[in-house]
C-alpha cells in the first residue's frame, strides 16, 4: 500500500535480481546455491590443480591424512583426486542428460496439453515408461552401445523425460483452459503461436524446477550405472570409485573410499533438490514474506 506506483510494475515483471534476492532470503536457498556453485567450480577448475589419478602409487589403502585428505585406494591412488575428477563427469552427465530430458519432456507435455487428439498417446507412452523398471532398461542399452560419457548422457536423458512430461502436461492443461488462450484463439493466432508465446512462458518456472530435479535424478542414475560397471572406463566418476572399493573387497575396511564419493553425491543431489523446492516456494505469491 505504501508505494502504489511501484507495485503493479513489480508484480508484472519481477527483475532477475529481485528474484535472486527472494531466492536467497532463506538459508535453504542461499546454502543450496552456494553448494551448487562450489560443485560447479570444483568440476570446472578442480582438475587443473590435481593430476588425473592413474597408475600405481606407493601409499596403498592409506586412511585420510594430511597428505591424502580422502585417503588412498588399493592401487595407491588419491581418492580426493578421484572425487574431484569425478565431479566433472557427474556434473556433465547431470546437466546434459537433464537438458535432453527437459527438451523432450516439455515438447511432449505441451503437445499433450494443447492437442487433444495427441493427448491420449502422450499419456499412454508416459504412463508406460513410468511403469517400467528403468534402471535395468538403461543397463542393457548402455551395455549394448558401449559405456562412455556420451552413452550415459543420452541413455539417462532419453529415459528421464516422462516425469517432466507429466508435470508440464498437467500444468499446461490448466493454462490452456484459461480465458486468455481462448482470447488468443479468437484473435486468429495459430496453435504453434499460442503454445510457444502463451502456454510455454506460463510453464517456464516449472521447467526451471524440473531442470534442477531432473539433473539431481540424472546424477543418481549416472552413479548407479557406474557403480554397476557401466561407467566410462576412461574417466572417473563417483560411482566408479565406489565400484572399485566393492571389486577389490575393501568396503568394510577402507571406509574412506566409499564415504567421500557418497557424501559428494548426497550433497550435490540434495542441494539441487533443495534449490528446486526453494525456487518453487520463492515464486509463490501466497508464500511471500516467509
Amino acid at each position: 500500500m505504501s508505494a502504489p506506483t511501484e507495485t503493479p510494475a513489480a508484480a508484472v515483471k519481477p527483475s532477475p535480481m529481485s528474484s535472486l534476492k527472494r531466492f536467497v532470503a532463506k538459508p535453504s536457498g542461499a546454502l543450496s546455491l552456494a553448494a551448487l556453485v562450489v560443485f560447479a567450480l570444483t568440476g570446472l577448475i578442480g582438475p587443473l590443480f590435481v593430476d588425473k589419478p592413474g597408475g600405481l602409487g606407493t601409499d596403498i589403502l592409506q586412511p585420510p591424512s594430511a597428505e591424502h585428505w580422502f585417503g588412498t585406494d588399493d592401487l595407491g591412488q588419491d581418492v580426493l583426486a578421484q572425487v574431484i575428477w569425478g565431479t566433472r563427469i557427474s556434473l556433465t552427465v547431470g546437466v546434459a542428460a537433464s537438458a535432453i530430458a527437459i527438451v523432450i519432456g516439455t515438447a511432449l507435455g505441451l503437445l499433450g496439453a494443447y492437442v487433444k487428439r495427441a493427448d491420449t498417446w502422450v499419456t499412454m507412452v508416459t504412463d508406460l515408461m513410468l511403469s517400467l523398471p528403468l534402471l535395468p532398461l538403461m543397463i542393457i542399452v548402455t551395455a549394448m552401445v558401449g559405456p562412455s560419457v556420451t552413452t550415459l548422457t543420452f541413455v539417462i536423458g532419453l529415459f528421464s523425460w516422462p516425469e517432466v512430461t507429466r508435470l508440464i502436461r498437467s500444468n499446461g492443461m490448466v493454462v490452456v483452459a484459461m480465458p486468455y488462450i481462448d482470447g488468443a484463439r479468437a484473435l486468429g493466432a495459430t496453435g504453434w503461436r499460442i503454445v510457444t508465446r502463451d502456454v510455454l512462458p506460463a510453464v517456464v518456472p516449472l521447467i526451471v524446477v524440473s531442470v534442477l530435479l531432473t539433473a539431481a535424478k540424472a546424477v543418481i542414475s549416472e552413479a548407479g550405472l557406474s557403480f554397476l560397471g557401466l561407467g566410462d572406463p576412461d574417466s572417473w566418476s563417483w560411482g566408479r570409485i565406489m565400484l572399485n572399493a566393492q571389486r577389490s573387497g575393501v568396503i568394510s575396511t577402507a571406509w574412506w573410499q566409499t564415504l567421500f564419493p557418497s557424501l559428494a553425491i548426497l550433497l550435490l543431489v540434495l542441494s539441487a533438490t533443495v534449490a528446486g523446492v526453494r525456487f518453487n516456494d520463492s515464486r509463490d505469491p501466497r508464500l511471500k514474506d516467509r
Partner: peptide, 8 residues
C-alpha cells in the same frame, strides 16, 4: 530421501 544413493 530423494538425494539418497542406494549403494551409499
Amino acid at each position: 530421501g530423494h538425494a539418497l544413493f542406494v549403494p551409499s
